[in-house]
Amino acid sequence: MILLNIAFYAFIAVVTIQVIYYLFLFSKFAFLHPKHETQKNIAVSILICAKNEADNLKKFLPYILNQEYPDFEVVLINDNSHDDTLEIMEEFATKHNNIKIVNVLPTEAFFGNKKYALTLGIKASKNEYLLFTDADCKPNSKYWLQEMSAHFNQTKSIVLGYGAYAKIKNSFLNKIIRFETLLTALQYFSYAKSGIPFMGVGRNLAYKKEAFFNANGFINHMQVRSGDDDLFINQVATNKNTSICFTKESFTISNPKTTFKDWLLQKRRHVSTAKHYKAIHKTLLVLFYISQFLFWTLAITLLITTYSWQIVLPLFLLRLLIFYIIFGKTSNKLDEKDLIIFLPFLEIFLIGMQLTIFITNLIAKPKYWK
């Protein structure tokens, strides 16, 4: 009885924390309307780092090259590929004079380090404004470059975009991947709107070359295999220099993993970088995850035992209602509306998977970006 009493008051505290996150933080993005900025027509360099991506380059590079934009180059970085990646790059380069190829050879000091390859690509780029995506990404429209670059101005040197994953019908894994991506976007867009930006995704990210060199590039976290996107943004982004772009024309669509094993390996690399975030970001992210975990654990325990259910059930439904409102708005904004009906199940499953990933990373750490 004493334990249930403790659980009851803990549940009230957890619901309060969750409501604060959703109403005072995540609502900043959920209720925000996308804004089409005036086209700037600034010269932009698009950077794509590819490792064994011959098939994806053949499939998706034409969408990059066919962007409706007056002045851009495409810097293709071959990171020591073992397939026909370099040959495909060279074939495209013979047909398009705005392609520049950077062929990265293996070095013992930087073996398997994407940041080293990206650094060489950034140095080789000719333009001040840089837009990053991956070889398996397809712009959602021919105005992707126009939309992303329009958010640069005299004070904004970083633009955070949305990198979605393609939908696969009747796939639970695909729904999990897209829900996790949706939750991550809700967080980094909301934090940015709150003046405490903490990350971006390399599938759709832009910043000025000046910002890169002023921060000495990736030098502060070069030893961390992942984090060319989130750790760099965590280091340099501020409430003054960061903008967000989430018009549907600005999305990129990537190929999702199709097996749980591959997805877990990918997420292990991503999660391993979080411990290097600034203290305020780590605190806020950990508190949110713990409150998520405890909300479901305590709610299920208290409802099964019917302990003070007259109070527990309304609080449970209140949090669930707010959760649905925020995610409903966000899902509509980011074109993930088919996830809405599955939201509670996806959240519970993802909480369990994140706990598994955290424990696995404590035992063995992932080493290479591919």
Rank of each mutant, 00 (worst) to 15 (best):
A185R: 12
L120T: 08
Q154R: 04
Y116V: 10
D262I: 11
L130D: 04
A237S: 13
W309N: 10
F327N: 05
N241C: 00
L120W: 05
L339G: 08
S81D: 04
V104Y: 03
K167M: 15
P256F: 10
A150L: 07
R319L: 14
K209I: 05
F345P: 02
A10M: 09
H151W: 03
Y21Q: 09
I177G: 00
T305Q: 00
K126L: 13
H221I: 04
V271L: 05
H270V: 13
F60P: 01
L65I: 11
S226K: 10
E108D: 12
G328S: 09
L47Y: 05
K365W: 09
V15W: 02
P256C: 08
S27F: 10
T258L: 08
L32D: 09
S291G: 01
I340N: 15
Y143M: 01
L350H: 01
N332E: 14
S45R: 09
H270L: 11
I340E: 07
V236L: 08
G202S: 08
Q187G: 12
L61H: 03
T259D: 11
L4V: 00
I77C: 03
I6P: 01
V159K: 04
I88T: 14
I17K: 15
F251L: 03
Y289P: 02
T119S: 09
L47H: 03
K114C: 15
N97M: 06
Y188E: 06
A135S: 12
F111Q: 14
N239F: 05
I42Y: 04
L294D: 03
M353Q: 14
I244W: 06
Q67N: 00
L264W: 08
W309A: 13
N97A: 14
A206E: 03
Q39N: 14
F110D: 10
P197K: 01
I177M: 00
R225M: 14
E68I: 15
P366I: 14
F152I: 05
E73H: 13
L186R: 07
Y165W: 12
T259R: 11
W309C: 10
G161Q: 04
I233D: 02
F8I: 04
Q18I: 02
A54H: 09
P139I: 02
I20M: 13
T181G: 10
F323C: 02
Y9P: 04
T181E: 11
I158L: 06
G200A: 13
A279G: 05
Q235Y: 11
N216M: 05
A135F: 08
N41R: 15
W263G: 00
A185F: 15
Q39D: 14
K367A: 12
I196H: 05
L362K: 14
A50L: 02
R319D: 13
M353W: 11
P62R: 09
T119K: 07
S190E: 11
S171G: 07
Q187E: 15
L76A: 02
T16D: 00
K35F: 12
S291R: 06
K370E: 00
P139V: 01
S190G: 09
A364Q: 12
Y162Q: 04
K248E: 12
V236H: 06
L25C: 07
K59F: 06
I48L: 10
L265M: 01
A7L: 07
I304S: 00
D230F: 10
C245S: 05
L339Q: 11
T273A: 08
N153W: 14
N153S: 15
I325A: 00
L334C: 06
T238V: 11
A274M: 11
A135V: 10
F358S: 09
K209W: 07
K267C: 09
L315C: 06
